[in-house]
Design a protein around this nucleic acid. Structure first.
Length: 201
DNA sequence: AAACGGATTGGCT
DNA sequence: GCCAATCCGTTTC
């Protein structure tokens, strides 16, 4: 059920991003368990990807997390207010990562509503990387946490999508990455209402 | 030591 | 649709 470290050592981060669709992301925060089906991801292709924080092999205090062996979380603060959650993959010193952009609530929905200050569940509760992380209670303290531990982990519930159900498009918000901005490394489930707004293919 | 700007969101027009 | 919010990692002085 729970994905093991071996799963995250996959060196092909683009395939991994696609494979993570349908997997179930769990958090356990002080006993409050919540989880959602991953319905939107983006691949960040290590040191060769201008959109990646690790582009060109840059190692800083922040990016060091991505250089570790696959199977841990990379969480950072964006725009001073949003925590973005990534899955670190591949081997040590190969800083690949998959950004989780949207989930479909599955377990502990009441906790998600509370964290998002929503009285009822609507798509915006976990649509978009900042919202999905907040719904699951993920913040900067989750950075570098082991994804095979008991605070945050991913399970395979044998939910799978056919190629017709999965769409690929350029990644969002990385225009600065120039020629790499057009690579179709964003994957999402066709027609799923929790997929974030920039829905164009 | 100080300035800059972003893998976004949501509230207002 | 447009634009302000908000803060810390990174770059620059």
């Amino acid at each position: 059920m729970k994905l093991s470290t071996a799963y995250y050592l996959n060196e092909d981060v683009v395939s991994l991003a696609k494979d993570l669709l349908g997997k179930v992301l769990f958090t356990n925060i002080n006993g409050q368990v919540s989880a959602g089906i991953i319905v939107e991801t983006e691949a960040y292709f290590g040191i060769k990807d201008k959109a990646s924080h690790a582009y060109g092999g840059r190692r800083t205090n922040r990016t060091e997390t991505m250089y570790a062996e696959g199977g841990i979380a990379y969480v950072y603060l964006c725009y001073g207010m949003h925590h973005l959650f990534n899955v670190v993959s591949s081997g040590i010193d190969d800083p690949h990562a998959v950004l989780i952009r949207a989930i479909e609530p599955l377990v502990g929905i009441e906790f998600m509503e509370e964290r998002r200050n929503m009285g009822h569940t609507k798509p915006a509760i976990s649509s978009g990387p900042g919202s999905a992380a907040k719904a699951l209670g993920i913040d900067r303290t989750f950075n570098a946490k082991d994804l095979t531990g008991d605070e945050i982990w991913i399970e395979d519930h044998e939910i799978s999508f056919t190629d017709e159900q999965i769409l690929a498009s350029p990644r969002v918000g990385i225009a600065y990455a120039k020629e790499h901005a057009l690579l179709p490394w964003r994957f999402f489930v066709k027609g799923n209402k929790y997929v974030s707004k920039p829905n164009k293919v």
